[in-house]
Amino acid sequence: MFTAMTYSDKPKEKYSQLTSQLDALLSGEPNRFANLSNASALLNQFFDRINWVGFYLLDGEDELVLGPFQGLPACIRIPLGRGVCGTSALNRETILVPDVDQFPGHIACDSASRSEIVVPLIKDGNLLGVLDIDSPELDRFNDDDREGLEELVKVLVKHI
């Protein structure tokens, strides 16, 4: 049974607690869609001031397809190299966007989104997809979020 947790005020400790909680939540479950669904629900509970959190998964060699998420309906397919998610996937690097209107080629799935962070999911050198989190606030995410989410994703990919 899942119980909501009170997290530390210190960013590194806060993300360490979240990552441990995620690892425990997914431990022993082999189904990747169940694990990605619970991961998106946990992240939605963890973050304030966001309007979308979820996953896009690699489908074939050059396209991402919508996976488990929390939020309004979203774009279903994103070509690699297009938008924030496709660019993060193609380059295999985290992208932190303070203002999505300033990102060339941004795909507006939800017009309320103003900032975004996308972290690639890489396991054994293979791209699996991306974690995408959107906020209706400008400049919502920072380097603490980037570092914390990159560590969280390392644990997550063990379970998918």
Rank of each mutant, 00 (worst) to 15 (best):
M1A: 09
M1Q: 11
F2D: 14
F2K: 15
M5V: 15
T6W: 09
T6P: 07
Y7G: 05
S8Q: 04
D9E: 14
K14S: 12
Y15C: 01
Q17D: 09
Q17I: 10
T19N: 14
T19W: 12
S20F: 12
Q21N: 11
Q21E: 14
L22S: 02
A24E: 13
A24Y: 10
L25I: 13
L26F: 07
E29G: 07
F33G: 06
S37Q: 15
N38M: 15
A39R: 02
A39I: 00
S40P: 03
A41K: 15
N44L: 09
N44Q: 14
Q45K: 05
F46N: 02
F47S: 08
D48C: 10
D48A: 14
R49A: 13
N51V: 04
W52R: 03
V53D: 00
G54R: 06
G54E: 01
F55S: 03
Y56L: 04
L57E: 09
L57S: 10
L58K: 05
G60N: 12
D62Y: 06
D62W: 04
L64Y: 01
V65Y: 09
V65R: 15
P68V: 06
P68K: 07
F69H: 10
F69D: 00
A74K: 07
C75R: 07
C75L: 14
R77E: 05
I78K: 01
P79S: 01
P79L: 00
R82P: 03
G83Q: 02
V84D: 03
C85R: 00
G86E: 00
L90E: 12
E93L: 14
E93K: 15
L96N: 09
L96C: 10
D99A: 13
V100S: 06
V100R: 01
Q102N: 11
P104E: 03
P104Y: 02
P104H: 03
G105N: 07
I107T: 01
A108C: 14
A108N: 13
C109H: 09
D110T: 08
A112I: 06
A112T: 13
R114M: 14
R114S: 10
E116R: 06
E116P: 08
E116L: 07
I117H: 00
V118Q: 04
L121M: 14
I122H: 04
K123I: 02
K123C: 08
G125A: 08
G125P: 10
G125H: 06
N126S: 13
L127M: 09
L128V: 05
L128M: 09
L128Q: 01
L128I: 05
G129P: 02
V130W: 06
L131P: 06
I133Q: 05
S135T: 04
L138C: 05
D139L: 10
R140D: 10
R140H: 10
F141P: 08
N142H: 12
N142S: 12
D143C: 05
D143W: 07
D144Q: 11
D145A: 07
D145C: 09
E150Y: 07
E151I: 10
E151A: 14
V153D: 01
V153E: 02
V153F: 02
V153I: 07
V155D: 09
V157G: 03
H159N: 05
